[in-house]
């Protein structure tokens, strides 16, 4: 975890955002300290799989101060979800959060768009039989830290895991690739 701390420090030094920004936000966020839900999640992405926009104004601190491995309860703001990238191999550079996540200020549109993105796939992971562990209904690239979405106060209720103490999730829950059908040659 030592490197993590150093990254947090680097990110703190690097954040450099203007601390006071009075612009309105375009997505529900800070004002409501929203409870997680699929609907709220949908409002924060261009399509399912796109990095979410930042639903709070720049706070003048490093993102990883609150969005760390465990997440953090932030007074008046609600619970900052943990980063799903904590365990992403080779992705420490994600301490540069603004490379992928932008603030969503209510600036309207430059030009309207007709884009309709991929909607969330709310189907649950299949089970071979009742009682079998469900397979992962999604890929794991960039979200290796399962607990970010499946445990803790920020996790959506329907996604919450009943046994977070069993740390090695992939021991029982496996990701599915689209091209995984077995054909004997």
């Amino acid at each position: 975890m030592k490197w993590l701390a150093s990254l947090a420090i680097a990110a703190l030094a690097a954040c450099g955002e203007a601390p006071a920004d009075s612009r309105k936000l375009a997505v529900p966020g800070r004002e409501g300290a929203l409870k997680s839900s699929a609907a709220v999640r949908a409002t924060r992405r261009l399509f399912d799989g796109a990095p979410p926009v930042i639903p709070h104004p720049p706070l003048g601190a490093a993102c990883t101060q609150c969005h760390n491995a465990l997440g953090m309860d932030v007074p008046e703001l609600g619970f900052a979800p943990p980063s799903p990238h904590e365990d992403t191999p080779g992705m420490s550079a994600l301490s540069r959060c603004n490379q992928c996540h932008v603030h969503a200020f209510d600036e309207g549109e430059f030009v309207a768009s007709t884009f309709v993105g991929l909607a969330q796939d709310l189907r649950r992971g299949e089970r071979l039989y009742d009682g079998a562990p469900p397979v992962m209904p999604h890929g794991t690239a960039m979200r290796e830290n399962c607990t970010a979405c499946h445990d803790g106060p920020a996790a959506r209720e329907e996604l919450r895991c009943s046994h977070p103490e069993r740390v090695r999730c992939e021991q029982c829950h496996v990701a599915q690739r689209e091209d995984s059908s077995f054909v004997r040659l």
Binding site: A26, L46, A50, V53, V102, H103, A104, F105, D106, E107, G108, E109, F110, V111, S113
Partner: peptide
């Protein structure tokens, strides 16, 4: 600029 998320940022 025709992508709302990028324009708003």
């Amino acid at each position: 600029r025709r992508v709302r998320q990028l324009h708003q940022a």
